[in-house]
């Protein structure tokens, strides 16, 4: 079984430099989760061409694994949840899609506006969920 989470090698630089992902000094795992969720929200999942490890799977909380499994169920049959390799693979593809969307978002706005823009996206999403 895989023991680490991978990303597309060429995106690593962006993980290091992204204003949104580094704004409060987020850890790799947190960066990955944001990218993954953003990818899901933008319905963008991209296969990894050249992998680069980002963090160890043992660093994930059981709760976070449930989040990964939810993504997997959405894409595959429910049985997939017991196949963690496949679960992580799906998560990696969403993260790969998400990181590209975040990169595009950052390119679009000024330095000061990054977080505001990101917050706006979150607020729009919450409004659409009718839970506030």
């Amino acid at each position: 079984m895989a023991d680490r989470i991978y990303i597309e090698e060429e995106t690593l630089k962006f993980y290091d430099n992204s204003k949104i992902l580094n704004i409060v000094g987020s850890k790799r795992k947190e960066q990955f989760l944001v990218a993954m969720a953003y990818g899901y929200m933008g319905d963008t999942s991209i296969e990894l061409k050249k992998r680069k490890e980002l963090f160890l799977i043992k660093d994930l909380e059981p709760l976070e694994i449930s989040l990964f499994r939810s993504l997997a169920i959405k894409n595959e049959d429910v049985h997939i949840i017991s196949d963690l390799d496949e679960v992580f693979s799906i998560a990696q593809k969403y993260a790969n899609g998400g990181i590209k969307l975040i990169e595009r978002l950052e390119r679009k706005c000024s330095y000061e506006e990054h977080m505001k823009e990101f917050e706006k996206k979150i607020q729009q999403h919450i409004s659409s969920l009718n839970i506030d």
Binding site: V34, Y40, S70, F118, I126
Partner: peptide, 24 residues
């Protein structure tokens, strides 16, 4: 401001995945 940003980043995944979580 930092607190708000931390809160955003920490909660972004569950918010973006909220409808999925709710469905499941």
């Amino acid at each position: 401001n930092t607190e708000l940003n931390e809160l955003l980043i920490k909660n972004a995944p569950q918010i973006f995945l909220y409808s999925l979580i709710d469905d499941i």
